[in-house]
Simulated scan of single mutants.
Amino acid sequence: MRHIPVLAKEILENLSEDMSVFMDGTIGHGGHIEYFFSNGNFDNTLFVAVDRDAQMLKKAKSYLTSFGDKIIFQNNNYSDLENISKNIGDKKFDGILLDLGVNMDHFKLSDRGFSIKKDGNLDMRFDSSSQYSAYDFLNNGNRSDISQAFNKYGDFTTKFADYMADCIIGERKKSKLSTTFDFVNLLKNIGLGTKKISVVFQCVRIVVNNELGHLEKFLDNFGSYLNSGGKCFIITYHSIEDRIVKYKFKDKSRIGNFQLINKKVIKPSYQEIQKNNASRSAKLRIIKAL
């Protein structure tokens, strides 16, 4: 089953059809780009499809093969704007999209370690060439870093985050946490239900992939890679991500080089949520370079 693009209609409504270059920094299955081609006129637009996950990029290529050389694919992190731009002749962009959600494929493949329902290696890396995995964080991380991750990214109280960190360290002294079910069973044994366990997995994933660090880097630099009139679209699903984007966009608009397109966050319609429940927590923010 293919990943469904979120808020695609709302993004398309804010796209200019005379764009020269558009970058999708989290291409996933390519649903957004396919929607734009199917519902707009972008014959003169070059689309740059970027993903740090080589497996996702390979899938996107297979889904978007009919568009030929209208799309250039790059296996890279969206925050590496310098090299992404260099690879297309140092061109700037008329639009940049980031959809910071996790592709459903990550949860379907047990060997990726994202799902709490499938037993597999404690991995959780988007970029499989990275040397740092969930196994490393949980088995070698210090108490403070583990506790802080649960407290900061999962909104667990400091006391309970410390308790979870102590339980993890106690367990790994007896035997390493090697699989997702090793970790799930530990969390069940300390009283967590399915929803809370999912939150804990999300916390570990955020750390392993340095998700907020890459987002901060992108937000600090994207203005240098947008043409005048170009727009940046960011879809978030986590309150911390949305808060970071919200205040960075506000700061840029105050300086005067940017204009907020939507002062209030754009959320999926009731109809979209009915068709795609995974979209329910999505929030879209748009800013325009002047």
Rank of each mutant, 00 (worst) to 15 (best):
N41Q: 11
H29V: 00
R52H: 00
T157V: 01
K61W: 04
L46R: 13
L7K: 11
D99H: 03
E17W: 08
S147Y: 02
G68Y: 09
D162N: 14
E10Q: 15
R280Y: 00
F126Q: 01
E34Q: 15
L100Y: 11
F107Q: 02
K9T: 07
V50C: 08
S133P: 00
L97D: 05
K252T: 00
N276G: 00
K288N: 09
S178A: 10
N83A: 00
L64S: 09
E82M: 06
L215R: 05
K108D: 15
H106I: 03
R2G: 03
L98C: 14
A161V: 05
D127P: 07
R254F: 06
G31K: 09
N76D: 13
F218K: 08
N189C: 01
T65Q: 07
L186K: 12
K70V: 02
D220W: 01
R205H: 05
L177A: 06
Q55R: 12
D155V: 00
A54L: 07
D220K: 15
L212H: 10
D51E: 04
I96K: 10
K283L: 10
V50Q: 11
N14V: 07
N140Q: 14
I261D: 05
A165P: 06
A161R: 02
D127W: 01
D111Y: 10
M164H: 08
D251R: 13
G230M: 10
D123E: 13
K92A: 05
R2W: 12
K118A: 09
K58H: 08
Y63R: 14
Q271M: 08
E13N: 15
L215Y: 13
H32I: 13
F233L: 14
L57K: 12
F218H: 01
F222D: 10
K118S: 13
N151I: 03
V199C: 12
V50P: 11
N140A: 03
D136N: 15
V184L: 08
S178F: 12
A149P: 12
I234V: 15
N140G: 09
S66F: 03
